[in-house]
Amino acid sequence: MSTAAILKKNSKLFLPVLSMSIFLAIWQVLHWIIGGEFLPSPYQVYLEAMRMFSIKIGGNSVWMHIYYSLRRVILAYLLGAATGLPLGMYMGWNRTFDKVVKPVFEVLRPIPPIAWIPIAILWFGIGEGPKIFICYVGAFVIFVLNSYTGMRYTDPLLIAAARTYGATRRQQLFNVAIPASMPSVFAGVQNALSMSWMCVLAAELVGAREGVGYLIIQGMDMYKPPMIMVGMIIIGIIGASLAVILRRFERVVCPWRRDLT
């Protein structure tokens, strides 16, 4: 087989590997240019990662830190879904309710989750409370917005069609509007997870004793740039993995979405 043919056959793997290699090469070059204290080399980061995974930091292994962060995210996320989705959907479905709730929501929405940290600490003390709350706020807003949009912009033709079959308002809601808003809801599901994950780091940076954010703070306190970078890379990999899992999940739940396949 010619080189071109071999490349074509493994093309799915080839391009990502190529782009990764280019990325690492650029990193290495920058390391040489900028200097070791500011930008550790890829190899140094790799060594540091090996070290970190074999010891305990602040009393917990790296896996435990990852677990703590994930736990916060998932709790906040599920709470956000349980409260945000029904609220957004009902706002999208019921015009009167929308008119009443919208002004309040529009004012609260632009407040970034991070701005809630001080008041969260005031309310929940320093512990799991504020961290979960911050993640919750981030996820909640996204869930509301996406389910609202999905509901509001359901194709009116489909609702008209359902009416001609004698569907009651309730039947229209459950049989047409909710399924029709699923694609939008799923976009929200993914965005909310990314948002939660980003928020947990912010929350952990302000007083935590475990979590991936804590690892980064430790790296900063101990003046170990490689440690900071390992922390960042862990964050990136977990964030990406969560996104992939969700996309798989969506393909199962929404098989009619041809643009996903």
């Binding site: 008209a160 069609a161 699923m182």
Partner: peptide, 8 residues
């Protein structure tokens, strides 16, 4: 425009 339910 058919108005079929795409999820069904």
């Amino acid at each position: 425009q058919y108005a079929l339910f795409p999820w069904k």
